[in-house]
Simulated scan of single mutants.
Amino acid sequence: MDYSSSQAEQAPQTGTTIVAVSFDGGVVLGADSRVSTGNYVSNRASDKITCLADNVYMLRSGSAADTQAIADYVRHYAHMHSIEEDRDPRVKAVAKLVSQINYSNKNMLLGAMIVGGWDPERGGQIYGVPIGGTLVEQAWTTDGSGSTYIWGYLDAAYREGMSRQEAEELVKTALALAMSRDGSSGGLARLVTLTKAGAERKLINHDDIPAFWDELEVLKTNGTASSMVVV
């Protein structure tokens, strides 16, 4: 069945922000946690970072149902491949599988994804898999409705040879910038850092997400000035 233009117009509008940055020794993947259906926030604490293998993770944006289905299929095939080869799958092989499934069903699926991971053959790698099934290896990338606000920032701030801490701070700040501008992005920020040592998750609570000048409001209570973040 073709996904016609009329169906696309009737489909619920969704939004998110996903970011991936490579550094000297691995990659950092990050996402906000807000799931929206039009103007309605259906989930404030969703996990948009999905494990495909022990060494490969995927960031999901677009239709949650479509990207979850792709992740389930790819996770199954990657697990079978790991058993047959008696090793973790190569990052590029898993990314190609995501791309092939997306491309083969491009008339029915609506999902933009980023695949990142680490393997002993090529180290840390990031692959963008936008709507339609294209596969592009990149040093950094972003997608989702909030990405339109941070392309310029990432382009200016990213540099080769960054440390792990620098890469994590870059992803954290990029997510915060997108969340402060995009109404469909928000909630918490989740990070996954993949290196030779494995995958490490980090949850950034609302209070720890960077705030910017236009989010700060000075309140005067009993003659004392205090600041608060308005979201």
Rank of each mutant, 00 (worst) to 15 (best):
M1R: 09
D2R: 11
D2T: 09
Y3V: 12
S4A: 09
A11R: 05
G15K: 09
T17N: 04
V19L: 02
V19C: 04
V21W: 04
D24A: 14
D24P: 04
D24C: 09
G26C: 03
V27H: 00
A31Q: 02
D32C: 03
S33H: 05
R34W: 02
R34Q: 14
V35N: 10
V35H: 09
V35R: 15
S36P: 07
G38M: 06
V41F: 03
A45P: 00
S46W: 02
K48I: 07
K48D: 12
T50N: 00
L52P: 13
A53N: 12
D54S: 10
V56A: 03
L59G: 02
R60A: 10
S61E: 01
S63D: 06
A65K: 14
A65N: 07
D66G: 15
D66V: 12
T67W: 12
T67L: 11
Q68F: 09
A69D: 11
A71P: 04
A71L: 08
Y73Q: 10
A78P: 07
A78Y: 09
A78I: 05
H81C: 03
H81T: 15
E85A: 15
P89S: 08
V91K: 05
S99P: 06
S99I: 11
Q100T: 11
Q100N: 13
I101C: 08
I101P: 00
N102T: 15
N102A: 12
N105S: 13
N105V: 02
N107P: 01
N107Y: 09
N107C: 03
L109S: 05
L110F: 14
G111I: 04
A112F: 01
M113V: 04
I114Q: 02
G117P: 08
P120C: 12
E121L: 07
G123W: 05
G124P: 02
Q125D: 09
G128M: 07
G128V: 01
G128P: 00
G128C: 04
I131A: 14
E137A: 13
W140C: 11
T142P: 03
G152L: 06
D155P: 01
D155A: 10
D155W: 01
A156F: 02
A156I: 00
E160Q: 10
G161F: 13
G161M: 04
Q165N: 08
A167H: 03
E168I: 00
L170N: 00
L177Q: 13
G183E: 03
S185W: 03
G186N: 06
G187D: 09
R190V: 01
R190I: 01
L191Q: 10
T193Y: 07
L194N: 01
T195D: 12
L203D: 12
I204N: 06
N205F: 03
D207N: 10
D207R: 11
I209C: 07
I209T: 08
L216G: 03
V218W: 12
L219E: 14
L219P: 00
K220N: 15
N222M: 13
A225M: 10
S227R: 14
S227A: 11
M228W: 06
V229R: 15
V230E: 07
